[in-house]
Write a protein that binds this DNA or RNA. Sequence first.
DNA 1: CATGAAAATATGCGATTTCATATTAATCAC
DNA 2: GTGATTAATATGAAATCGCATATTTTCATG
Lengths: 151, 151
Amino acid sequence: MTLMTAPADKPTTFVDDYLLYQLASASQHLSDEFHRKVKASGIKIHVWRVLACVVDQPGLMLTSLSKLVLYEQSRLTKIIDQMVSDGLLNKQAVAGDRRKMAIFVTAKGQEIVAPLLISAKAHETKVLENLTDSEKTMLKRVLKKLCNPRT
Amino acid sequence: MTLMTAPADKPTTFVDDYLLYQLASASQHLSDEFHRKVKASGIKIHVWRVLACVVDQPGLMLTSLSKLVLYEQSRLTKIIDQMVSDGLLNKQAVAGDRRKMAIFVTAKGQEIVAPLLISAKAHETKVLENLTDSEKTMLKRVLKKLCNPRT
DNA sequence: CATGAAAATATGCGATTTCATATTAATCAC
DNA sequence: GTGATTAATATGAAATCGCATATTTTCATG
């Protein structure tokens, strides 16, 4: 048997080196990993996502929030209605524009999201453990740059 | 008016600095961007994704392919059945195990996917234009690392 | 201040997706 | 070889999602 010089030169395939695939793959695998914990605590994924975003930026109106949460508007409308009737969020009329609704988290919503935020950060820390410091900072910087290319 | 020393110190929010959000956001925004072109050419997104993966790794069986495509197994079963009857893929029985089906792209499938592969690479190039060389290589390396942390 | 355009949210329905489970086939323990 | 386990794929019903569009309100312009 001859010495192997490298881990074999499997002809580089398309997806392995395709940025959009790599992003989708990393995103999905890592999110799934954390989502298992969310589900285990009895919370739906979309509820977690919306709570995290509303806690983060309270008082947004539906349209802006849908961009932040990355959910399509009509879908978010339905999710929020449900969360309002579940007592996790409330909608407040915005003075001066009767179309707009500002969205906030209730005390009950806070209670639910608080431990998840901690758990999420802990998970992130574990994920980032595999990277060097410079990799960490560059990764986050580059991801931000990719989202708004005009910066 | 005083000189602004920095773009204001908006208190860093959770999601802005949360890796899983950044990944999801970058993935979704960039993919949507390319998907507009795919749709414009009359191809469904899932058809593009499956074709790209099967071209990349022909002869995979359904279960492995579903991991590569990042689609759940029963969903992929249905998609592939449709694509087979549309003449884009074919399934071949695997000798020695009558449960397995190896999946390949037909000539018609090739014709459809070929221009999309070129277009995808062109889009990727444009996306990566905003990054330095070292950012590019690190980004891809780190994304791979994130997907299989045990490497 | 009337009219047309644009913005914010809501709604209904068709299409897609998922979940649980069925079915068929291979493998393992004995 | 028989029975129990595991693997690969398929299927059907229920849940979710997204598209197109409706509705209400504001804005712009003459």
